[in-house]
């Protein structure tokens, strides 16, 4: 059942990305580019997203366990380190350069356009390079 619900969550997540405007790479660039007629619209995606998730998060995690697993898998890392900052900085550069973060890129691949396909292939390559460069024994 957790597979079915993962699929349903993926669908709903994708609908949210499309409706919100996050899959319009030019709109994302217009949000991040403050020089040429700044469009702040996409800041409201975070307002809606955090608002909805915040309203439900406490309720969900107050349960002993999720519906189809024995435990919640929440991140436990606490330390603010150089990897976190350098990684986030590099991600921001790629995001500002292309207008794509991972979710919208995966949704946009279905359009058949060459840009999102090229971006997703390069993104997978970048992820693989990280795996090979930083082999970690402890789960994150």
């Amino acid at each position: 059942m957790n597979r079915l619900f993962a699929f349903l969550a993926g669908i709903l997540f994708g609908v949210g990305l499309i409706v919100s405007g996050m899959t319009d790479a030019n709109k994302v660039i217009a949000f991040l580019d403050v020089a040429d007629g700044w469009d702040p619209t996409l800041a409201f995606v975070m307002v809606g997203g955090i608002g909805a998730h915040l309203a439900l998060f406490k309720l969900i995690t107050s349960k002993d366990k999720p519906w189809f697993e024995d435990q919640f898998f929440l991140p436990t890392a606490q330390d603010i380190n150089i990897k976190l900052v350098v990684g986030a900085a590099l991600f921001g550069i790629g995001w500002g350069l292309s207008g794509y973060c991972p979710g919208p890129a995966l949704v946009s691949v279905a359009s058949g356009a060459k840009e999102p396909l090229a971006l997703v292939c390069a993104m997978l390559m970048g992820m693989l390079i990280k795996e090979l460069a930083f082999r970690e024994k402890t789960p994150q």
Partner: peptide
Amino acid sequence: AIVGGALIGLAASLLLIATGRIAGI
């Protein structure tokens, strides 16, 4: 943007309550 964002938040909530996972793409 707000409605789409809320749907994203709902999707993250659905994944969390069903599978216990964080919706980090």
